[in-house]
Simulated scan of single mutants.
Amino acid sequence: MIDPMIRSVPLSFFRPLRQAVRDLPRWNPVRIAATIVLRRAALANRHHLAGRLTEIRPLDEPMLSFEAVDSMVMDAVFWFGVRGYEGTAARIWTDLCQRAESVLEIGGNVGLFSVLGARASSGIYTAVEPVPVVAATLRANLARNGLTRVEVLEAAVVSGDEVRNVALNLPDEGRKMPVGAHLVDDVEVVGRSTRTQIVVPGLPIRQLADGRDLIKIDAEGIEAVLLADIRALLVDRRPNLLIEVLPEAKRLGEMLAALASEANYQIHVLPAWGSDRIVTVPAASFTSELPRTYNSKDVVLSTGPLN
């Protein structure tokens, strides 16, 4: 239940609680209590936070600046910080980008990982985002942080060899910046809401992935189709991969297990909350439901151990 009284509280009142989330270990009872209060504050300020701020500056990454927009991602970054929201994935992505020569990020959304990765990368960086209003925010966030080298492609990513128009479902999330937009066809995760559908360009993943040594895919259910289309490339060149794996994506789980075995990848699960410990699992035991047992949906396939 939303408490309008909480919305009337100045945002500065919550700063000590936000600092506790930033500074204290995850198991600390003070941090746990602060998190509970901040969740209530976040709910009370849903849709209103953007109007109360001129920018979003995460306490744990104060050098970064983001557009104050109606976005679940930006809300979470304000209240809990980058690591409080994304857990170990933010740190690992930064480390991977620092070592990569050519990065491809599929599903950039408003640009949180794009900003983190592009700041660390000295090589080629391409971010792909199909929703026009979200892609505009991604570009604005890159510009706010002086990241002018990033190529932003306003498109979806598809299998096959030809550029083609595809239907994109915009879910009814009650946000101006949706996070769950997904292709209508070939999507493994089903049963989502629909606000409207739009037509966007679809760019072939084979062309985008060629020559990359780091690929991130957060494509809301089409990951298995995309990876299958570039499987030969992955086995041959073994780029590091960061993939969102939802529990329902059973084909994706099976594909990642088989790919790790065939290409001699290590599989690492990156907890979002509850722990900062990266969990390395045998390929034979990996399934799409396994990351959830570690409070995660982010999985890295790497050619070596993670830092």
Rank of each mutant, 00 (worst) to 15 (best):
Asp3Lys: 01
Asp3Trp: 04
Asp3Asn: 15
Met5Thr: 09
Ser8Pro: 04
Pro10Tyr: 08
Leu11Gly: 14
Ser12Phe: 02
Phe13Gly: 05
Phe13Ser: 10
Phe14Trp: 15
Pro16Cys: 03
Arg18Val: 03
Arg22Ile: 00
Arg22Cys: 15
Asp23Arg: 13
Arg26Asn: 00
Arg26Trp: 15
Trp27Asn: 14
Pro29Cys: 13
Val30Pro: 06
Arg31Lys: 11
Ala33Lys: 06
Ala33Gly: 10
Leu38His: 05
Ala41Cys: 12
Ala42Trp: 01
His47Lys: 08
His47Ser: 13
His48Arg: 13
Ala50Cys: 11
Glu67Leu: 09
Val69Phe: 04
Val77Leu: 15
Gly81Thr: 06
Val82Ile: 15
Ala89Phe: 01
Arg91Lys: 13
Trp93Ser: 07
Thr94Glu: 14
Thr94Trp: 00
Asp95Ser: 14
Cys97Trp: 00
Gln98His: 14
Ser102Leu: 06
Leu104Glu: 02
Glu105Leu: 15
Gly111Tyr: 05
Leu112Phe: 03
Leu112Asn: 02
Leu112Pro: 02
Gly117Val: 04
Arg119Thr: 05
Gly123Gln: 09
Ala127Gly: 09
Val131Pro: 04
Pro132Trp: 04
Pro132Met: 07
Val133Pro: 03
Ala136Trp: 01
Leu142His: 03
Leu142Met: 11
Ala143His: 05
Gly146Leu: 10
Glu154Ser: 12
Ser159Pro: 01
Ser159Val: 07
Gly160Tyr: 07
Asp161Met: 14
Glu162Gln: 13
Val163Lys: 06
Val163Asp: 15
Ala167Pro: 02
Leu168Asp: 06
Asn169Ala: 15
Pro171Ala: 12
Asp172Glu: 15
Asp172Thr: 00
Asp172Arg: 09
Gly174His: 09
Val179Pro: 01
Ala181Asn: 10
His182Trp: 10
Asp185Cys: 11
Val190Arg: 14
Gly191His: 02
Gly191Pro: 08
Ile198Leu: 13
Arg206Phe: 12
Ala209Tyr: 04
Asp213Ile: 00
Ile217Glu: 02
Glu223Ile: 01
Ala224Val: 07
Val225Leu: 08
Leu227Asn: 03
Ala228Cys: 11
Ile230Val: 13
Ile230Asn: 04
Arg231Ser: 12
Arg238Gly: 12
Pro239Met: 07
Pro239Val: 04
Asn240Asp: 15
Ile243Trp: 07
Glu244Tyr: 02
Pro247Thr: 03
Arg251His: 12
Leu252Glu: 06
Glu254Phe: 02
Leu256Thr: 07
Gln266Cys: 13
Ile267Glu: 00
Val269Asn: 00
Ser275Asp: 10
Thr280Asp: 03
Ala283Leu: 10
Thr287Trp: 01
Ser288Glu: 08
Glu289Trp: 02
Leu290Lys: 08
Tyr294Leu: 01
Val300Trp: 04
Gly304Lys: 01
Asn307His: 09
